[in-house]
């Protein structure tokens, strides 16, 4: 028996919005510590890694490890039927070929359930090594989304250059070029508005705007985003989900052939 309940459907709606741009389908691996999802986009350039810890749910029970392959488009149709303040419960029997989403209104007067067929997905699993990154940037998630959106008008690629002075985002193309520099915050009044840089070595890396813009669909989940970078390795873009886990995106850099 698997059962996971959240008091507000908003969190699950936001999580789904954060991943469905990149993934058509994905396997939710459930065990007694929580729910994990790891999947690459179709072009194998980026990877989504989602963790929802058991202790972050209002109720969580998972008697046997369970892998639930879901079509995220179908899941989105179902989640659209939930009000933001509904309680949402996911339920599945051991070895089931369906999952049930149950929504309960706050006054308990409306209860809906939606049964969705599960899929057998044959997905590659990547081993992601622990890495000490040369630069870690923490900045407002809204600001990062804005920068990705603005600069993607000027080119397909975004260059991120991180030094001890700050972080610079650049793009260039037919129109011309654009640069946005963010200095490290000197005095932090509001932590969620701060730009914090931990730098061991300066880093300059180039990434496809298209994927970065997809990652920013996670912005509603949290105030701050963390970018972890080292020369010639994938970028990690992490959004923490309050009290329950995180979504991390890995993006392979563009490289000189």
């Amino acid at each position: 028996m698997f059962e996971a309940r959240l008091s507000s459907a908003t969190t699950l709606k936001k999580v789904l919005d954060a991943i469905k741009d990149l993934l058509n389908e994905a396997t939710f691996d459930c065990n007694d510590s929580g729910i994990q999802l790891q999947a690459m986009d179709n072009s194998h350039v980026s990877l989504v890694s989602l963790t929802l810890r058991a202790d972050g749910f209002d109720k969580y029970r998972c008697d046997r490890n369970l892998s639930m392959g879901m079509n995220l488009g179908s899941m989105a149709k179902i989640m659209k039927c939930a009000n933001n303040d509904d309680t949402v419960t996911m339920k599945a029997q051991d070895n089931a070929d369906t999952v049930v989403f149950m929504f309960e209104s706050q006054n308990q007067e409306k209860v809906s359930d939606y049964e969705m067929k599960l899929m057998n997905l044959d997905q590659e699993h990547l081993g992601i090594p622990e890495t000490d990154y040369a630069c870690i940037v923490r900045m407002p998630a809204m600001e990062f989304a804005r920068i990705c959106r603005d600069l993607s008008q000027f080119g397909e690629s975004l260059v991120i250059c991180c030094t001890k002075e700050g972080v610079k985002f650049s793009a260039s193309g037919d129109v011309g070029s654009a640069n946005i520099k963010l200095a490290q915050t000197t005095s932090v009044d509001k932590e969620e508005e701060a730009v914090i840089i931990e730098m061991q070595e300066p880093v300059t890396l180039t990434f496809a705007c298209r994927y970065l813009n997809s990652f920013t669909k996670a912005t509603p989940l949290t105030n701050q985003v963390q970018l972890s970078m080292s020369m010639d390795v994938p970028l990690v873009v992490e959004y923490r989900i309050q009290d329950i886990g995180h979504v991390r995106y890995y993006l392979a850099p563009k490289i000189e052939d």
Binding site: M40, S43, H44, V45, S46, L47, E124, H125, L126, G127, I128, P129, S157, T206, A208, V233, P234, Y250, A252, P253, K254, I255, E256, D257
Partner: peptide, 14 residues
């Protein structure tokens, strides 16, 4: 020439 790398180049596949 600048090209897009794939993740497999960096992470082992299981």
């Amino acid at each position: 020439e600048v090209t897009q790398a794939e993740l497999r180049k960096y992470f082992p596949v299981f």
